[in-house]
Each structure stands twice: as structure tokens, then as C-alpha cells.
Simulated assay, not measured.
Amino acid sequence: MSATPDRRALVVGASRGLGLVLVDELARRGWQVIATTRRPGGELQEAADASNGLLTIESLEMTSTEQLTALAERLAGTRLELLFVNAAIDRGDLPIDQVPTEMFTEVMTTNALSPLRAVEALRGLVAPGGTVAIMSSEQGSVSRNTEDGYELYKASKAALNQLMRSYATRRGDDGHTKLLIDPGHNRTELGGPDAPLDPRESIPAVVDVLEAQAGAPGLRFLDRHGNTVPW
């Protein structure tokens, strides 16, 4: 994004999977990275210990508005070039008529509502010309929903995209680049062991897109190659 060596990013949801690889890749490129996790320790702490101070960790339960407010207060005065929100859960492949109300609420809260709450709570830390990005999915594309399966997950990602579009409309004059990123189907706990992509190969491409899009106006829904994903 910036040509300066002190680029700073905040990645919400970085304890495992794509978020963990993302913070590792950003730090590898010299970014100062703040990563959030619900639970301390694990691979994220190992990455922080090996980062020569480029990666620091903050505790956050993203579904808690109180914790979001507390994080924003702790980071007051921090200048971010990138705010990246990564969060998703999947509760299996059920037809929508078989999805319990509690499950519907949990998935929609985690995958759609909470990421936008995080953006709203933390957007004030993003510098003029900085980027606000959310990890989305091609599964949230309504026009590409042509195969059966995973109806609740698809609906949650479509809801996320629509809420981000509303946010971009409401915050259109804030000078921030706004991105929804489709990283592809990766071999993670969420994506499963048979997914075709290795996060260590796909996430560097995602970071290339983040850096290339810095300063671009408006909201774009892009894949890891920088191509537009249809709504």
C-alpha cells in the first residue's frame, strides 16, 4: 500500500486458518501487524514470537460489542493502513427448512452482523487512503449460486456482502478503499481437507490484491487474482 516501511494492519480473527496465514504473510512483507484472537497461545503466539516484533496480539471476541469497544479504546491513536476482518463458521450442509433457529442466528451473527460491527467500531483507526476489507466468499455471490448445498453458509455470505455494500454507501465519503475478498476454496478447518487450494499459495495472492487496490475508491468484490466477483 504505502511505500513506507511502517505500514500497520489490524487483522480481526487471526488465530487459525486463512487469518493466521494472512498475518504471517503481512509480517513477512514488513507490515506491523496487530492480530486478534479469542484465546491466547497456539500457532498465532508462535508466529508472534518468531516475528521480531512485527506481530502483536490482542484479545477479542468479535461477537461482543463490549469487547469491540474496549479494543478500539486500547488502540486509540493507532494509525492503520489496513483493517481486515476475517470471520466465518459453518454448521453443516442442511436444507434451510431443517436449520434450527438457534443455528441460523449463530451463523448470521458470526458471518454477517459481527464483521460489520467490527468495521464500524474500528474504522476510526484507519488512516485517510487506508483500506477496510472483509473476507467474503464466492459462495456469497447470488448469481453464481447454481449448485445445491450449504444454503445457510451461502446466505450468510450474501448477507455480509449486502451489509458491506450498505456500509460503503453510507460511508462513501470517508476516503477509505473498501474490499470484499474471495480467497477461493482453501484447505482449512472450514474449507475441509479436500479443498483445491493451499492457503500458503492463495493468501500471498490476496495480499497482492490488497496492496494493489490501496487508494482505489468505492467498494469492490474481488477474488485472489484481483478479478471482479459478480454480486
Rank of each mutant, 00 (worst) to 15 (best):
Ile57Val: 15
Gln32His: 14
Leu68Asp: 01
Asp97Tyr: 06
Trp31Ile: 12
Gln32Glu: 09
Glu102Cys: 12
Ile57Thr: 10
Ala27Thr: 12
Leu83Trp: 01
Asp93Lys: 00
Arg39Phe: 00
Gly92Leu: 10
Phe104Asn: 11
Asp24Gln: 15
Leu26His: 06
Ala47Met: 10
Ala47Arg: 10
Thr37Ile: 12
Glu102Arg: 09
Gly17Asp: 12
Thr78Trp: 07
Pro95Trp: 01
Leu20Gly: 14
Phe84Val: 10
Gly42Ile: 07
Arg39Gln: 14
Ser59His: 11
Leu18Trp: 00
Thr78Gly: 10
Glu106Gly: 05
Asp24Met: 09
Val33Ala: 08
Gly17Leu: 13
Ile89Glu: 02
Asp49Gln: 11
Gly41His: 00
Asn86Glu: 08
Leu60Gly: 13
Ala87Tyr: 03
Ile34Asn: 00
Val85Cys: 07
Glu102Tyr: 07
Gly19Asn: 06
Glu58Arg: 15
Ala27Ser: 15
Val107Asp: 07
Glu106Ile: 09
Asp97Met: 14
Glu73Asn: 11
Thr63Cys: 04
Ala76Phe: 03
Arg79Thr: 14
Arg39Glu: 08
Ala27Ile: 10
Gly42Asn: 02
Leu83Tyr: 02
Leu75Ser: 12
Leu68His: 00
Leu54Asn: 05
Val99Thr: 08
Ala48Asn: 06
Met103Arg: 08
Ala72Trp: 06
Leu55Asn: 06
Glu43Trp: 00
Leu60Met: 04
Leu75Asn: 03
Asp97Lys: 06
Arg38Cys: 13
Thr37Glu: 08
Val33Glu: 00
Asn52Glu: 13
Gln98Ala: 15
Asp93Cys: 07
Val23Met: 06
Leu83Glu: 03
Glu25Arg: 02
Ile89Ala: 04
Arg39Gly: 05
Ala88Trp: 01
Phe104Lys: 03
Thr63Glu: 15
Phe104Asp: 06
Arg38Gly: 14
Glu66Gly: 11
Phe104Glu: 02
Leu22Ile: 09
Leu20Asp: 03
Glu25Ile: 11
Ala35Phe: 03
Ile34Gly: 03
Arg38Thr: 06
Glu58Cys: 14
Leu54His: 04
Pro95Asn: 00
Val23Lys: 02
Gly53Tyr: 03
Glu73Phe: 02
Val85Trp: 02
Pro95Asp: 01
Phe84Gln: 13
Ser59Phe: 04
Leu75Gln: 09
Asp90Val: 15
Ala72Arg: 10
Glu81Arg: 13
Pro40Val: 03
Ile57Asn: 04
Ala72Tyr: 01
Gly17His: 05
Ala50Cys: 00
Glu106Lys: 14
Thr65Ser: 15
Val99Gly: 12
Met62Thr: 05
Thr37Ser: 13
Asp93Thr: 01
Arg28Ala: 15
Leu94Ser: 12
Asp90Glu: 11
Asp49Trp: 00
Ala72Leu: 09
Ala87Asn: 10
Thr63Asn: 08
Leu18Asp: 04
Gly30Asn: 04
Arg79Ile: 08
Ala47Phe: 00
Leu80Met: 15
Gly92Lys: 13
Gln98His: 06
Leu55Val: 12
Trp31Ala: 15
Asp97Thr: 13
